[in-house]
Amino acid sequence: MRVAVVGKGGSGKTTTSAVIARTLARRGLRVVALDCDTNPNLGISLGLGDEETERLAAMRDELDAGDAEHAPSWDELIDRFGSDGPDGVRLAVVSRIQNPEPG
């Protein structure tokens, strides 16, 4: 199953995504939760806590700053930019590589 959640800011994307991810995980599925938001908060709703959520975000930011190399494959991406949360959900912060021009 592959699900993407979209919507206006504040409409509940992150909360909905987290509940879906953890519900699937509790039913025994292997779940990867991808935070594609440039303001990545999914870790909070999944239950990883402030600190771990910020650690993942900071790691993602290092890519934009040019301080880190990007992962060459999807499994390495999940491995390097991810973290295990409650119910065994693997969270990875994978927002698009930054283009400094807005829009």
Partner: peptide
């Protein structure tokens, strides 16, 4: 300004 953290400080 744009919501979230990416856009607002690119000059806006």
């Amino acid at each position: 300004l744009p919501g979230g953290t990416r856009q607002p400080f690119f000059g806006w």
